[in-house]
């Protein structure tokens, strides 16, 4: 592992609870942290550990486990290393502390996540304003339970006249129609 990451993680471990440390590359590490500690951790990373470049905020929907995984990717532009902080939050009434005060663009990410996943970030500017969608009246579309194909078929008039045959079924109908299992 990269020495910078090692040092950083060691210094973090004394203050924060780190789980599932997974090294993906020499310069990229994934760490799971507790929801409550995340914002103070990000602040610490920015101010003391020189991880000043906020790369992105992403979310992964683990619908099976009933959680959203928030991934905060931080970058140390001097030492060229990345640490990704994963933070699991409940899917039901998902809500997370806002980090908009740390980096300016975080507010945009949070707006998007509210719209696309329904994750609330209380206090984040304009977070409840529509960002990408307009006139959306269904559940947030990026949630996994939302079926985009069905929605599209119901809404957007697919052109009729398309039917495809499965070679296997077709051959069965043609060659041995009476065989049934």
């Amino acid at each position: 592992m990269n020495t910078t990451i090692e040092e950083t993680l060691t210094s973090l471990e004394s203050r924060f609870e780190l789980k599932d440390i997974k090294q993906q590359r020499g310069d990229l590490v994934f760490v799971t942290v507790k929801k409550e500690q995340l914002i103070s951790l990000l602040t610490h990373m920015r101010d003391n550990e020189n991880f000043t470049h906020f790369v992105m905020l992403s979310v992964v929907d683990w619908i099976e486990d009933g959680v959203f995984q928030l991934s905060y990717i931080l970058n140390n532009p001097e030492k060229h290393v990345d640490i990704v902080f994963r933070c699991m939050i409940e899917r039901e009434n998902a809500s997370m502390e806002s980090a908009h005060h740390l980096w300016k663009q975080v507010a945009t990410y949070q707006r998007e996540l509210y719209e696309m996943y329904g994750i609330d970030f209380p206090g984040s500017p304009r977070v409840h304003e529509s960002f990408i969608l307009e006139g959306w009246d269904d559940i947030p579309p990026m949630r996994r339970e939302f079926d985009t194909k069905k929605y599209s078929e119901d809404t957007y008039f697919p052109r009729p006249g398309r039917e495809s045959k499965d070679p296997k079924e077709h051959m069965k109908n043609k060659l041995y129609p009476d065989a049934d299992k």
Partner: peptide, 19 residues
């Protein structure tokens, strides 16, 4: 514009322009 193209199953793009 003809039948949805790449985005035929997208929730946010129309499929048939002639509608």
């Amino acid at each position: 514009t003809i039948n949805g193209g790449m985005y035929w199953d997208s929730y946010n793009t129309i499929n048939r322009l002639d509608y």
